[in-house]
Design a protein around this nucleic acid. Structure first.
Lengths: 171, 171
DNA sequence: AAAGTGTTTGACCTACTTTGACCTATATGG
DNA sequence: CCATATAGGTCAAAGTAGGTCAAACACTTT
């Protein structure tokens, strides 16, 4: 079994044991425990604890710094997951984005408020930087995907009556 | 818990206990109480009790000197206008963005849901395109600006027709 | 064997905190 | 007036801790 897999299951066990599905860990401590480079922890986090996997990660540097991992369940057959795979993909033009948002709104998949937030993020004013159009399309796709995943997780957690905040006040 | 965090909550408790949301403290006394350098108090004040956090600070040196901290609530609209001008500008680093979102959330200027939407749009995963960091900062600023403007437009329209705003919420 | 994919490591970077040396402002008694 | 004690301010260095990136490595597929 690879190191990364051990670290992955170790973290998942920690999350399973925490009743609120959120944990805090010290990167250097964990690295020492597994006798590996600290950046190995980042590798595990970035490959196995992504938004697509249903994890939100925040961290703080400096004295008393830590990494917070929050897990939110997502049903894999979700409509939005399908849309992200089939409609967003890795490239999204502006008209495609607008069409998708309109469809998501009229089908009541997301609220008008959420749609306007996404539209604001993807608006030409927001993306007014001098980069080639195909890079903008890649950017649109990434932003759309992350925002849709965030929306759908919120909707699901509201259904379960719990709240998973990404932004929490530090204690 | 970090020293700074302890001092921060100590001061916030004092302010919470004072019915007019304003207190006076002696820097050296507080430093002695926490067994730290007096300048530590200044550090806490300058990182956690800034105008952006909604605090005004005055102080007097010399005999009988003291530090006065006053907590002021502002309307979300004014606050956001101010922040877009002063904090976002034309360039926004990732830590700046996260700090701003945290502050907007804890001050109840925007909801946690809106903050996570913006965080999703600005997350490193969203902006994972090969462009120079200063261009990313410009992008972050534009996206943040547009999304915040969208949020406050929605807040304003929700309040339009009703009493002329000013949401004052305590704690 | 070569190419591709995923993993591991280490050098270097950035963010946040703590401390202390030195500076400035105000009050007060001689 | 002004010397001195009192009290806050500033700044930079040191300390703590996480982030990034690219090179090296390992394992698979072709």
């Amino acid at each position: 079994m690879r190191l990364s897999d051990s670290i992955e299951s170790f973290i998942k066990e920690m999350i399973g044991a925490a009743e609120d599905d959120g944990i805090e860990l010290r990167r250097n401590e964990l690295a020492e425990y597994f006798h590996c480079a600290p950046s190995q922890i980042n590798y595990v986090l970035s490959t196995r604890f992504t938004p697509e996997h249903g994890y939100m990660i925040e961290s703080r540097r400096g004295g008393g710094g830590c990494i917070r991992i929050i897990h939110v369940e997502t049903s894999p057959t979700d409509h939005v997951d399908y849309l992200i795979r089939e409609r967003v993909g890795t490239s999204l033009t502006e008209p495609e984005a607008r069409l998708l948002l309109r469809q998501l709104t009229v089908s009541n998949t997301i609220t008008a408020a959420d749609a306007s937030m996404i539209a604001a993020a993807l608006s030409p004013q927001s993306l007014a930087v001098p980069i080639p159009e195909e890079m903008k399309s890649a950017l649109r796709a990434k932003i759309m995907r992350n925002m849709l995943l965030t929306v759908i997780r919120r909707i699901q957690s509201e259904h379960r009556g719990t709240t998973a905040l990404i932004i929490r006040e530090r204690k």
